[in-house]
Design a protein around this nucleic acid. Structure first.
Lengths: 231, 231
DNA sequence: CGAATGATTGACCCCCTTCAAAAGCGGTGG
DNA sequence: CCACCGCTTTTGAAGGGGGTCAATCATTCG
């Protein structure tokens, strides 16, 4: 059967002759490696709500905040994307969320149309996308539980532990808060004042220690932090 | 709430010769049609957190609440799954959430291992799973924004509109609340008392009308309800 | 009917928000 | 070097939205 899509035709021809640039079963990472690298300054947007969804991005360096704003300006951060994370996946032609760099970052850009068309004939790739979205779904659900059910202190504890799991290994007890208090507040459904006060409270309880002008948090009592986060 | 996509043409194998039980490219719907139908009584569980993830389910009838419980009993409902929605997808071998019937329901059961192994060699199927999870991710994000940023009245309005979009067509202004107040509360991160009071408030504002002993809601002023939900 | 379950309503209180001010913390330039 | 400025964070005081506790009402079902 002849391939009908442009990309498939290309891959098919390439496989038959020369070494293909994009083989029928290249991995997601192979494809991403081919994307161009883009540098994003702090507070610059990777994409905005309403933009045509032309690309999918993989964070290489830095932190990207993915968020939704309401008409009156209220903002809910859905996720902080760290190196390795994919952002911009979806089924719609336009972005429903915005993505903004928390600090100077680098992202690899990959054509969404190409990627998703390729996935239509490459089960391996499609499965990878499926798994990536499943991971993201799990993270979003976790945040939903935190925001829907937990107190301010519990939310902060949960947030710090998530950062710790994602950044430092089990031994590294210091996590770097690249984001501002307002970002943490908008992630956890709190105000900056409450975030600040709650951090102070955790500090006074001897659970954490704040360094470097409030940008680094050292976990002093990991067990109590976990207890707080789960309760 | 993984909505499946429209049934596509049957695989060429099936059209060309006999119908195989599971052709290399059967659609998700074909596969689901082969699953056994299981009746679930109200309050009965489809699966529980910690159970081995042996099956994926598609709701055929009724409503299934997918939720997570904290150690102290607090509960966050992640989603109400309605007919057509898929539940139980994921990458882990065990369930991380629980699923419980809100009212007497019917679900179609499909072996998770079989489905996911089939997806590894069937791009078409894998893409369908990918899209289904994307849909669910979008819905979960929407709920997260609601719970993280909106007031009680706004949450209720958002909830009612979501139900309306899902159940009644644009013309049907009456939505059936199959679930109890406690379910709505646990979905929206409120208490049953607040849900009750807020419904009363919307009623006194002339936006909704409650019928059938509190189980049905008639939307009297759709525009004001939308205004509330988006604000 | 009477018991059980769920929904509503009331009174009180607390956690978090809001409003306001002060204090850090870099940068820039005189 | 330090004064100044903008930005962010911290801290304080006051108020409110929703939680908690408790009583009443409604509905269903044995």
């Amino acid at each position: 059967m002849l391939a009908t899509h442009p990309l498939e035709a290309r891959s098919y021809l390439q496989t038959a002759r020369e070494a293909p640039k994009i083989a029928p079963t290249t991995s997601l990472d192979d494809r991403l490696a081919q994307g161009t690298l883009r540098r994003i300054e702090a507070k610059e947007h990777v994409y905005c709500e309403g933009d045509p969804r032309t690309h999918v991005f993989q964070v290489e360096q830095g932190v990207i905040a993915v968020y939704k704003t309401l008409v009156d300006g209220r903002r809910q951060i859905i996720d902080f994307a760290y190196p390795g994370d994919l952002i911009g996946l979806g089924v719609l032609r336009e972005h429903v969320l915005s993505a903004q760099a928390v600090c100077t970052s680098k992202v690899r850009c990959l054509s969404a149309a190409t990627l998703e068309r390729a996935a239509e004939s490459d089960a391996n790739l499609a499965i990878k996308l499926y798994r990536a979205v499943c991971q993201e779904l799990a993270a979003t659900r976790h945040l939903l539980v935190t925001v829907g059910q937990r107190s301010a202190a519990e939310r902060l504890a949960s947030f710090l532990l998530t950062l710790h799991r994602r950044l430092g290994g089990p031994s590294n007890m210091t996590v770097d808060l690249a984001m501002r208090r307002s970002d943490i507040a908008d992630l956890l459904g709190l105000t900056i004042e409450t975030v600040s006060r709650t951090i102070a409270k955790l500090r006074s309880m001897g659970i954490i220690e704040v360094e470097h002008g409030g940008t680094k948090v050292h976990i002093r009592d990991f067990d109590r932090l976990e207890e707080l986060a789960s309760g």
